[in-house]
Nucleic acid binder design. Sequence first.
RNA 1: GUGGUUGUAGCUCAGUUGGUUAGAGCGCUUGAUUGUGGUUCAAGAGGUCGCCGGUUCGAACCCGGUCUUCCACCCCA
Length: 456
Amino acid sequence: MAQKPSIPKGTRDFSPDEVVKRNYIMDTIKSCFTTYGFQPIETPSFENSETLMGKYGEEGDRLIFKILNSGDYLAKVDDSLYVAKDSLKMTGQISEKALRYDLTVPFARYVVQHQNEITFPFKRYQMQPVWRADRPQKGRFREFYQCDADVVGSNSLWQEVELVQLYDAVFSQLQLKGTTIKMNNRKVLSGIAEVIGEADKLIDFTVALDKLDKIGEEGVKKELREKGISESAIDKVQPLFTASGSASEKLNLLSTLLASSEVGRKGIEELSFIVNAVASLGLQSATLEIDVTLARGLNYYTGAIFEVSAPAGVAMGSIGGGGRYDDLTGIFGLKNMSGVGISFGLDRIYLVLEELNLFPETASAQTKVLFINFGEAEAMYAMNAITQLRLQGISAELYPDAAKMGKQMSYADKRNIPFAVLAGESEIASNTYTLKNMKTGEQDAMDLPSLVKKVQ
RNA sequence: GUGGUUGUAGCUCAGUUGGUUAGAGCGCUUGAUUGUGGUUCAAGAGGUCGCCGGUUCGAACCCGGUCUUCCACCCCA
């Protein structure tokens, strides 16, 4: 065999079966988005580098795929940079465009650019691929889809409430029971950092705290010490390591801890509002949980932070995340525009549904009736019926060649086509069709109207 | 970006201390069955052992590099 072609690391081909299943997830999400009043937009696969660079932290910049300039891209490079082999500085001179890293920053760019055409509050959804120059592992790809719903231009906490409901609606409709929507608030985290006197180390503090379930209490403390956070500060956050119980118990704990912090109290107030509203509205299948260690997410979150984890027992990172960012469009020059949004990780949801065997049968159904080809005259007779079936919205096809019958039958079998129709000389003579049920093996001759009725 | 791991037929995988012609199951093709698939039986096709280089009389096997897979870290959906 000749050398096999291949695709880049971390990318995938999707075969018919997979595309059908992916469409099922996307259709479900899309219909929920629409039900909640979100409108679709799309943005380009690649943006100007300055739109993306610096928005995701230093780590993010490294993970952005840069697009090499066209033409003689080395001509513009400073000789000094070239000689020094300074890749970091040279990148800006040989690359002016980059592949989209997420959907939120392009959305912010979109809002600023189209601010005069948009009616606020603007609720948009967007389902498009994003790219990250990451090292792949399970559930982690270099090209993957995000499905985002964001509201921009409203400070109302009802948006957060609705987004929790939206998560619940999507996962319930996908029959994915037992998901946990973890919620925290950036203001609470700021409050904690403030109370322990480490306000300037907020990021280091939250990143370490976030790892609690992974590296344990001692691991977190160790990392805090390494980041230069004082022993007395660590003592003060001790209650957080063992926080458990109901949402109201956690809120009480936080109230005590953060009594002296104004921003902290504000965060608790927001969490309470959302928890109470969701509690009285009820959720179908998801659980809303306050997780004070939840700190993930990008640095621009300012209020609520969400993360959805798959049902217990499924080894998978988060399948969704989101939060409130008070000033995302500020970086593009539009001030005082608050946004809040959530994201669904399509590819990970797929893996979870696959693992739990939750794809419905219909997600793989396709052609319903295959007409066996016996020759030219018979094919014409079959095509008459096929045309009628298709007009009725029934997917039907003719085997294109007058191949051996066994081959045609096994084609129907392999493609899981539920009905085969045999129409040869004798059927033509009596103006009938022999319909065979591939599952039971039963077959009967009938006229066209009966056939249509039978396969509907 | 750091450390580790994986690669043999279309697929899932065997392959002994380095030794002559690299195997199995499933799948595929053909026939038993010229108007009947899924079961059965028989026969057959299919491999540059990821790629490049090195050690050796001799390499799927040992060594180096590279790509890929998966995993941990970092970070994240």
